[in-house]
Design a binder for these strands. Structure first.
Lengths: 366, 366
DNA sequence: GCCCTTCGTGCAAGCGGTTACATCGGATCC
DNA sequence: GGATCCGATGTAACCGCTTGCACGAAGGGC
C-alpha cells in the first residue's frame, strides 16, 4: 500500500523530442575522441592535468563537430552564469545609452552576457522590485544605472553573492562610479555668477519618487551652495521642473521666462533640458546669451552644435569603469567597495555671457 | 583490468559548496507542502490536473519560502530559454537606442530576457560571426537591428529553430520591420526640388563594409530617383560621406559647401548628420535656409529644437513591432515571414526654403 | 628494486528542474 | 455491483555539463 511497495519499474529510455537543434553534446565529442566526457570538459576549458596530445585531439574533434557547450547546463552545474544585469531607467536617453555602451563593451569583451533591463519609473520599477529575488538566481552581477534602491532591496542584494555596482547613484553598500555632481554644479553656477548674474534660474527635476534621487539633488545642492557663497539668496520661484527631457526643458524655460522677474541666466541640470530651453527661448523671441544665458550639464554630443556652455562628463567611461569594477570584484576580492569618481569639466561655449545690463537683477529698467 | 572491473564505489553525498545563495529548491517546497516535486512543478506553472486545494497550498508554501525557480535548471530541462538576443551596431546612437527601447519594452513585458549584444563594425562584428553558433545554443530568438548578415550566417540561422527578426535591413529569409527608405528619401528630395532647388547635395554613408547596407543605399536610390524624375542629373561631386555621425555630418557639409559650385540644398540621410551639417553651416557663416536648405531623416527628438525639416519615422515603434513579431513567431506559426513597413512622413520645418536666388545653380552671382 | 609522488583519465554523483508513464481512489455507467 | 474513466499524484529518467575521488602508469629517491 505504501508507494514504496510498488515494484520498481525498470529503467526506460525515453525518446524525448530534442527541442533545440540536435546539437552535438560533450558526449559525442568524447566518443569520437576516445576519451571520457570529463576529459573533454577539462581539455576544452584549459584545465591542467590533460596530456597535450589528448587536449589537441579533443580540440580537433570539437572543432570538426562544431561543438559548443550548452551554457545552461554549464551554468546549472557550476552555479555561475557569467551574466550581468544592466538596469537602467530607459535606454533611449543619451546619458544612459552612453553608459550602457561602455558597460556592454567591457563586459562582453570579457565574455559576459549582458541582460538589459529597463526600469521605467512605474511598471519597470515594480518589476525590478519583484524580480530582484529571481534576478539573483540567474545573475552573477548587477549594474544599476541611476536606479534607486529601497533599503529592503539593498538588504536583499547585500546578503547575496551577487556583485553589484552602481553608476550615478552611490550607496555605502556597493562599489560605485559617479561624478562629483555637487562640485560640478557649483562650478557651473559660479561661472554664471562670475559673469555677473545674480538671478540664476534652475531647471531640474523634483524627484517624484519617494526615494532620494541623488543626481539632481546633488547638482541642486551645488547650485545653492554657489549662490550662498556669493551672497545670493536662493529663490524657489527661480526653480522649475524639466523632468530631464527635452520637452520638459522647454516647458520649464517658458515657465521661468514668463515670470514677473525672469532670471538672467539659467542652469539646466542636463544638456537635453538645456536644449529644450533653447527652443523655448527661440519661441519666446529671446536671444541666448544676449537676453538670457544658459548652461547645461553633460556635454552631450550635440552640445557643440548648439554652442552650448556645459559641464562635461564622460558617461561611456563611467559605464566602462563600472564594468571593470564588476569584473574586478572576483570572489577573492571581498567587495573592496571602491568608489570611483569620474572627471567633470566646465566647457565654456557660446550660450553664456554677461547679463543684459549691469544690475539686471534689479527690477528697474532705467 | 577493464575499468568496469572495479568494485563499484558506493554512492556518496558530496557537500558541494553551494555557489549561489542557498536558495530554496523545488524539493524543499515539495517537502513542506507534502507533495512530490512533480506536483509542485505543475502547480506553480499553472498546468492542469492539479487539485485546487493542492495548488493553493503549494503556492502558499512557495510564497512563504520565497521560492524562485532556477531558470538555468528549467532551461536545461525544457530546452527553451525565453531569452532573445538584441544585436545592434552601437546602442549609444539615437536611432538604435530608440529601437532597443521598443524591443525591450515588449519583450520584457512578455517575460523574456533581452541579451544586449553590440556589434561594432570591427571587433563586435567578428564576435557575432564567431558566436553565432554558440548564440544559437542559448537564445530562443534574435533581433537584428541594421546588422548585416553574410549568406553563410543566414544559412546557419535559417537552419535553426531560433526565431529571427530583422529591423532596418530586410532579407527574404526572416520577418522584418523596415520603412520604405527609397520612397521616403524620394519624398524628401522632391520637397527640395519643388522649392526650386536643382543642385541638391547628399550627405550619406558609403558602406565601408563589403556587405550591402540597405538603409543608406535605399535612401540614396530614392534621392537619385527623384532627381532623375525631375530631369536633374545626378552629380557625384554633390555627395559626401557623413558616416551617420554628428561629427561626420559636419565634415561632409564643410566639404560640400567649400566646393567650387556648392549645392543650394542638402539632404542628410540622418538627423544627426543634418545637425552636424548645421554646425558646419554656422561655422562657415552660412545661413540656413537663407544660403542653403537642409533636410534630415528620422525626426530625432532634437530636430524640433533645430527647427529641422526632416522625414519622420518611429524607431521605438519599429522595435516594439519587431518584438511583437518575434513573440508571434510561435512554434505553431511556421515563420509567416511577415514584412512590416512603418510609416514615414515629411515634416516641413524651418531649414528648407527656396534657393537663394532664381537660377542659383548657375555659377554667376549677378 | 621498492615505495611514494605526480599525471592523466575515468566514474558517477550531483546541479534543480520537467515530464512520460504508472498508480490509485472515486465517480460514472450499464 | 463490477467494469470503466478520469483526475490527481508520485516515480524516476532525463537535460548536458562539472568535478571530487579513485585508480593505474610512470617517474624519482634511496
Amino acid at each position: 500500500m505504501t508507494p514504496a511497495g510498488r515494484t520498481a519499474p525498470e529503467p526506460r529510455r525515453r525518446a524525448r523530442a530534442r527541442s533545440r537543434t540536435d546539437a552535438v553534446t560533450i558526449e559525442e565529442v568524447a566518443r569520437r575522441a576516445n576519451v571520457s566526457v570529463a576529459t573533454v570538459s577539462r581539455a576544452l576549458r584549459g584545465l591542467p592535468n590533460v596530456a597535450p596530445s589528448t587536449r589537441s585531439r579533443v580540440e580537433q574533434v570539437a572543432r570538426e563537430l562544431n561543438y559548443q557547450v550548452d551554457t545552461y547546463a554549464s551554468r546549472l552545474a557550476t552555479g555561475r552564469s557569467d551574466t550581468v544585469g544592466l538596469a537602467v531607467p530607459n535606454i533611449n536617453n543619451w546619458y544612459f545609452a552612453q553608459v550602457a555602451a561602455g558597460v556592454e563593451a567591457v563586459l562582453s569583451a570579457a565574455g559576459m552576457d549582458v541582460l538589459l533591463h529597463s526600469v521605467d519609473d512605474d511598471s519597470g520599477r515594480a518589476r525590478l522590485l519583484s524580480e530582484l529575488s529571481s534576478v539573483r538566481r540567474r545573475l552573477d552581477g548587477l549594474i544599476l544605472i541611476d536606479v534607486l534602491l529601497t533599503p529592503a532591496e539593498i538588504r536583499a542584494l547585500a546578503g547575496d553573492p551577487i556583485r553589484v555596482v552602481t553608476v550615478g547613484q552611490q550607496t555605502e553598500h556597493f562599489p560605485s562610479v559617479t561624478v562629483d555632481n555637487r562640485r560640478a554644479a557649483a562650478g557651473a553656477t559660479r561661472h554664471l555668477i562670475q559673469l555677473g548674474h545674480r538671478r540664476i534660474g534652475l531647471i531640474g527635476s523634483s524627484s517624484r519618487t519617494p526615494l532620494p534621487f541623488d543626481v539632481p539633488d546633488h547638482r541642486r545642492q551645488g547650485y545653492v551652495e554657489a549662490l550662498i557663497e556669493a551672497g545670493i539668496d536662493y529663490r524657489e520661484e527661480l526653480e522649475a521642473d524639466g523632468g530631464f527631457s527635452v520637452q520638459g526643458g522647454t516647458e520649464a524655460m517658458v515657465h521661468l521666462m514668463t515670470e514677473a522677474r525672469p532670471p538672467t541666466a539659467v542652469f539646466a541640470l542636463s544638456d537635453e533640458m538645456a536644449m529644450g530651453a533653447l527652443k523655448a527661448a527661440a519661441d519666446l523671441g529671446l536671444h541666448v546669451p544676449g537676453d538670457v544665458s544658459l548652461i547645461g550639464f553633460d556635454d552631450h554630443e550635440l552640445a557643440v552644435v548648439f554652442d552650448l556652455t556645459t559641464v562635461r562628463q564622460d558617461p561611456e567611461w563611467q559605464g566602462a569603469a563600472a564594468g571593470r569594477l564588476l569584473l574586478g570584484l572576483g570572489d577573492d576580492h571581498p567587495a573592496d567597495l571602491e568608489h570611483l569618481v569620474g572627471d567633470t569639466r566646465l566647457i565654456v561655449r557660446g550660450t553664456t555671457a554677461r547679463p543684459p545690463a549691469p544690475g539686471a537683477s534689479s527690477p528697474g529698467r532705467h
